[in-house]
Design a protein around this nucleic acid. Sequence first.
DNA 1: TCTGGGGTCCTAGGACCC
DNA 2: TCTGGGGTCCTAGGACCC
Length: 439
Amino acid sequence: MTTPFFPPPGPATFALVDANNFYVSCERVFAPRLRDRPVVVLSNNDGCCVARSEEAKALGITMGQPFFAVRALLEQHQGVALSSNYTLYADMSRRLMTLIGQYSPEQEIYSIDESFLRFSGCDHWDLTQRGRELRARVLQGLGLPVGVGLGATKTLAKLANRLAKQHPDFRGEGVCNLQELTPAQQAGYFAGLAVEAVWGIGRQWSARLQQQGLATVAHLMRADVPTIQRQFSVVLAKTVMELNGISCLPLEEAPPPRQQIIASRSFGQVVTTFDLLSEAVASHTARAAVKLRKEGLQAGLIQVFIATNPFKPEAPQYHPGATVPLSIPTADTTRLLRAARVGLRHIYREGYEYKKAGVILLDLAPVGAVTGDLFAPPQRATSARQAQLLAVMDDINRRWGRGTVRYLAEGLAQPWQMRRGRMTPRYTTCWDELPQAGG
DNA sequence: TCTGGGGTCCTAGGACCC
DNA sequence: TCTGGGGTCCTAGGACCC
């Protein structure tokens, strides 16, 4: 048994470490031709730009911009657009998080490319220097550039990370430690930061805050907390306190139990018939069920939704959803497929051009933790044979790739599948796709 | 022609119960 | 004639994040 780690009481410093342009940086590690030129990584269906190299940002390409709108510009500057290669990014992320975790026993993995660390009882350490070391280590070990922000709360660490990446005073080192600045120095930087630079403040709230004359971080910091809570919400009130160094958001070292599992996709082409929609819904359901079993969970409820294309407002719009309770909580794909089909029958209408479909699994609980309903008529639980079959299918698909064995309900030709024409190899997880050196 | 996917939390309002 | 109030649960919608 390992000795549990008890953080010493008292004030702590939080660090936020995140990779610069993570998806693009992952691609560049294995393809030197991508260096020093504009590169974007596209969302599913090759739809939007979700990651941009510095050169692409300099061309004015924004986050989430549709690819078709920037395609010509990119070509004009010898730029490259890639489909997203999540297998590669997930594997690089795993390695990145392992390395970062070596710098503190208290780590929260916040997203695919971001991690918080907490340093408590480390007053004698030069954390800025530790940050520099971490950065050099990740660059050497993985080839990924990261930024490090340090502050008294998670929100301040995020803000420091922003300064580390963008402000000329810190950009060179890629590390910003707010803890070693005087209040006057901090105030100077905060007066130069727009309020939407703060973690948790998006477009809507930023517009409302500006109307009230709270345009910069320095303004927001001095706002009256009860007023903010009344006019916005308790979430924003906590943000204001965090900006003042009062820690309200704890480090979440273990991920909180999951509330839902979503599987959805836009179609590569428009779908109108029930049968094709049903194939797509079945395929999403099977994918969600695999995730469910992988995490040892059961679902009590499945939601099905379909939608027309919101970017074609001249066409008739329709985006219904249906909720179908499972008679007993299950992780059995067969049962989920049946329930999803019932839901789809309820909401399908002819005469619409559908662009997207998906399912959401809800009421999740660990297998074995579900209490039976004493008064409900007895239900046949998933048999041992069925459970074995599912386990074998999952195993085959894990080993030989997703979709090697699948349900006929998912269709064979699958004309609705997403476009994905610009994929790079899965360099680190697939023997057939290892990077090659030389000729 | 062409516009992502997967999450969380909070709030308001209605149904229902006692 | 006169028609409460508080609690809980659920859902939809809106905000945010990466």
